[in-house]
């Protein structure tokens, strides 16, 4: 197996997944709309006053991102499982974790990135002071891939199951807690006038750790699920 072959397979998987997502716009659009709807509920449910909203803005956006990513992850390997693509990926001579990583990147590009791009607008609607924008976006950029890749393990474990019900949530929510903590702490620290770099560095460290380990775990999980 030459190096170019692996690179080609990686890019081909990435391109294929992106193309499929573009054809199935609902899979992208639904979690995105869900994200905006969840955020817009908080001012109504908690308090419309900007003094109150300002305090909870970062946390609300982060929680909505987590919920939306759980919604979008549900379909991560489903169609590949149903049409047999997953079996072909497993049989391929290219290391499975690389292909999984390509799929994770594609999924993040269509589900994570749009949410991040719209987050400053929602932050504005939640009266987050402008000092917090950059940090919020940076924390989302570093944190959402972590959530996506951890969730990918849980999805891979449950891929063949008819009714996964709450399993996905029960597994991924506790795993996302550290990301949520450091993401919101970074923003709060920036608002308080401190430097958020320490927390962002921790998020970066988590990202490095998940990039190196999570695709391996997902690949193992897929092999288990496919028997």
């Amino acid at each position: 197996m030459s190096g170019t072959n692996i690179g080609t397979a990686f890019l081909a998987t990435l391109k294929r997944d992106l193309l499929i997502s573009l054809k199935r716009r609902n899979d992208i659009l639904n979690p995105f709309m869900f994200f905006i709807i969840v955020v817009s509920l908080f001012p109504i449910g908690v308090s419309p006053e900007s003094a109150m909203l300002r305090q909870i803005a970062a946390g609300v956006i982060w929680i909505a991102v987590l919920l939306a990513s759980m919604l979008s992850m549900d379909s991560l390997y489903r169609s590949d499982y149903e049409d047999g693509t997953l079996e072909q990926l497993l049989l391929s001579s290219v290391p499975l974790y690389l292909l999984v990583f390509a799929k994770n990147i594609a999924h993040w590009l269509v589900s994570g990135l749009p949410v991040i791009l719209v987050s400053p607008l929602l932050a504005y609607m939640l009266a987050l002071p402008s000092e917090g924008y950059m940090t919020l976006v940076a924390s989302l950029l570093l944190g959402t891939p972590v959530v996506g890749m951890l969730g990918s393990i849980a999805v891979a474990l449950t891929v063949g199951l008819g009714s996964r019900g709450l399993i996905l949530a029960v597994i991924t929510v506790p795993m996302s807690v550290p990301v949520l903590i450091f993401g919101t702490l970074a923003v709060q620290n920036a608002l308080a006038g401190g430097s958020p770099l320490g927390y962002l560095a921790l998020l970066g460290a988590m990202l490095a750790l998940t990039i190196s380990l999570a695709p391996l775990a997902t690949a193992a999980a897929l092999r288990i699920s496919m028997n």
Partner: peptide, 27 residues
Amino acid sequence: FFLLLGVISLRAAIENAETAARACALL
């Protein structure tokens, strides 16, 4: 506590005993 509930529910959801064993092991 939540994560342990996750392991239990994963075990309950997978019918094949050996698949369940290995999935729960990984989790």
